[in-house]
């Protein structure tokens, strides 16, 4: 048995310890907001926060996530919810599939950098592919979130 703490809830699951966290979250725990895109850690669709750091959950064995705090797109975090509001306001998604991973990457960025430059946004988001090409709006939505926060 492995115990995962996801979005503040404990889940006891009976899986092989080497099962990637992605599949434990999606197929065992049943939270499908976290997406499979490449399976080799190059597209960012499966990003979650693991003890506040963004990780590609397709690359993390479930055993390595035990005892750590996992936040998925369904989770609660101040910056995540603010970013989601900006994503909606600016009509960012096209097909929407990569956006949970994009939002987690953006949340991790704002958690450690309250006023990122364009270059810092590029650096934080470079691991996330959007085949529809919504990058410009993603960038605008991150800037908007920062502006609204700074206005208090």
């Amino acid at each position: 048995m492995i115990t995962l703490q996801i979005n503040g809830e404990k889940h006891q699951i009976d899986v092989a310890p080497e099962m990637p966290l992605l599949w434990a979250i999606r197929d065992i725990v049943g939270l499908t907001g976290t997406k499979y895109g490449c399976g080799i850690g190059v597209c960012g669709s499966c990003k979650v926060l693991l003890d506040n750091s963004p990780v590609q959950s397709c690359m993390i064995p479930v055993s390595a996530a035990e005892g750590k705090k996992i936040v998925t797109i369904e989770g609660v975090s101040e910056n995540l919810q603010l970013l989601q509001a900006s994503w909606t306001a600016l009509n960012v998604p096209q097909c929407g599939f990569c956006q949970p991973g994009q939002l987690i990457a953006a949340t991790a960025l704002l958690d450690k950098n309250s006023n990122p430059t364009d270059e810092e946004i590029n650096e934080a988001m470079i691991g996330n592919i959007c085949r529809c090409g919504t990058y410009q709006r993603i960038k605008n939505a991150i800037h908007r979130t920062v502006e609204l926060k700074n206005q208090g």
């Binding site: 994503w87 009509n91 960012v92 998604p93 929407g96």
Partner: peptide, 27 residues
């Protein structure tokens, strides 16, 4: 107009094909 599904996309609740689940479903 804003997309009618944009909130579901942003909060992860939008059901894509990969997200469909049925009782006793195999993979």
């Amino acid at each position: 107009l804003r997309g009618v599904d944009v909130e579901e996309y942003a909060n992860g609740s939008a059901i894509f094909g990969l997200d469909k689940r049925l009782p006793n479903m195999k993979f």
